[in-house]
Write a protein that binds this DNA or RNA. Structure first.
Lengths: 311, 311
DNA sequence: TTGTAAGCGTTATCAG
DNA sequence: CTGATAACGCTTACAA
């Protein structure tokens, strides 16, 4: 409630001096600084950010746009986003930034339109996007999902799982598509068939049937590349429920906590979402390079666990 | 970049008229409104929030403080927080609020100190807190974790699991303590022993040993009340790894996606984090009741699944 | 229905 | 080293 004028008055100085003291400017003496600080203390002063931002022509604010999915839960159940937010947050607070996010709640398209309208907003997209008309100023931080897909396939083949299937839930999600394409390309480069199998996110009974009929048709199947860790857990459950005797290898993406405590523990490709967030925030704060239409790739890493012990 | 003055000039009106048009005030004619709107369009005008907030003496901003845990991952792996954020976000965007959060990164105590210092910041705490010196103005949104603990115990007993154990990881977390206390109170009210067993979040080998020696000592054990869903999944894994022949009942809290796809699917108490978030945001936006030190309780609900099929 | 002008809290320029 | 003073972009009495 107290303004810098009140502080100045109490300290017996001008507002400009008070302001300088606030910012620990070395244009003023330590003595007056101290006097001003005491006044601030006494008045329980805290600066008005709106006023500061107005005069400094900044916002000290960055936006995070999160995708909307069918179900309320899907975002929450994907640790990826929370970890990104943490990464962003850590960098922001290091730089005295407060940060804002809009949970994006309608159709996906209008995000960029919104961003374009806010001309003085710079934008970093975490993950890739189907969107075509992306403003030049937009930068990306992403994993190389295609390469990760290749790596997954290569790893499985090397482990001796010759006959693989890519298990996915939704090819409208670019991540899944890219991983599939990488997997597929690698398989083909080895003269192997790049099989894939779609599962429902909701109808488990249906999934059991799908799996059973697929395995009946493809009895040689040895291993699965799951589009993400939730899919992998689903697969494990399906195997149990369809009382399959055979032991299938599974590799998944994301390496969230559940892959470690799954049974058997899942081999998974860590994509370091926390680092994605950190990098995104750094780009956002780095005003200089606003113009360059660049793309930063965060590397991934295979974390090997029990689910690919081929014995 | 264009200001309201530019708009006014282009539209051939005064800034106040332009401002009124911006807010669709009915003090001015539809004709001039239209003219102003066209000018805005043409100039790609967007209002400066800092200036608006300064003059309106608002911030259009709410703060979210997230707890810090030992590991970077723990927040991300708890769907609870993301769902809360989504709930908050939905209400905020309905009310034209932008929202800000600080990921709180140091010791827990100074959160309230910070909030107190920002005198014009109103505060809602989601979940409870050990903190004693909480400002009067702070309101809470929480579950009744104690009652949920009671309900869990009651449910298990009713299902025929007579000998129960509460499995937890950290009694420094108030949620776990409260759930334990509810469980414990109910057990005692039934003249049963309220056993509990601590597990490590990291050392799985240690956990296997702990479980085995506990079960050796308490061979009658039939069921587990897990402090949360991650704990429950851990338990399932431990059972597998210790090759126990007996089938134990498990009930967990949180009802996140993984409880549904666990094997066997876990009976779990849903605590509706999304609603917690919504309610928190509503309280925050409701300036009127700032003074009342109130506490809103979001109810919980047992979602029954396979893990408590006692046959 | 519209315009004028004061002021929101802060910083920066410039003069002392 | 310090103090006036003019912005920053916007809203809102008050006046017309």
């Amino acid at each position: 409630m107290a303004t810098i004028k009140d502080v100045a008055k109490l300290a017996g100085v001008s507002t400009s001096t008070a302001s300088r003291a606030l910012h620990d400017s070395d244009m003023i003496s330590e003595a007056t600084k101290e006097r001003v600080r005491k006044a601030m203390e006494e008045l329980d002063y805290s600066p008005n950010y709106s006023a500061q931002n107005l005069v400094n022509r900044t916002t000290n604010t960055i936006g995070i746009v999160l995708p909307v999915r069918e179900s309320k839960d899907s975002l929450g159940n994907n640790p990826f986003f929370m970890q990104i937010i943490q990464g962003i947050s850590s960098i922001c607070s290091e730089n005295g930034y407060i940060h804002v996010f809009f949970l994006y709640s309608r159709k996906n398209d209008s995000v960029f339109e919104f961003v374009k309208n806010q001309k003085n907003v710079s934008c970093v997209v975490v993950g890739s996007s189907y969107e075509e008309k992306i403003p030049k100023s937009v930068r990306f931080v992403d994993n190389d999902n295609y390469q990760a897909g290749r790596d997954a396939a290569a790893f499985m083949l090397e482990k001796g799982y010759e006959h693989l299937v890519f298990a996915y839930t939704d090819m409208n999600e670019l991540v899944q598509t890219e991983r599939y394409q990488g997997y597929s390309a690698y398989m083909q480069s080895c003269d192997k068939e790049a099989l894939s199998l779609h599962f429902s996110r909701v109808n488990e009974d249906d999934n059991v049937l799908k799996l059973q009929s697929f395995l009946a048709e493809h009895p040689k199947t040895q291993g699965f590349v799951a589009c993400d860790d939730i899919m992998a857990i689903r697969l494990q459950r399906l195997f149990k429920n369809s009382q399959s005797l055979k032991k299938y290898g599974i590799i998944s993406f994301n390496n969230s906590l559940i892959t470690a405590i799954a049974n058997p523990a899942l081999t998974s490709i860590d994509i370091f979402p926390y680092q994605l967030g950190e990098k995104a925030a750094q780009l956002l704060l780095d005003k200089k390079q606003k113009e360059s239409h660049q793309k930063v790739i965060i590397s991934h890493k295979i974390i090997e666990r029990e689910s690919t012990n081929n014995d």
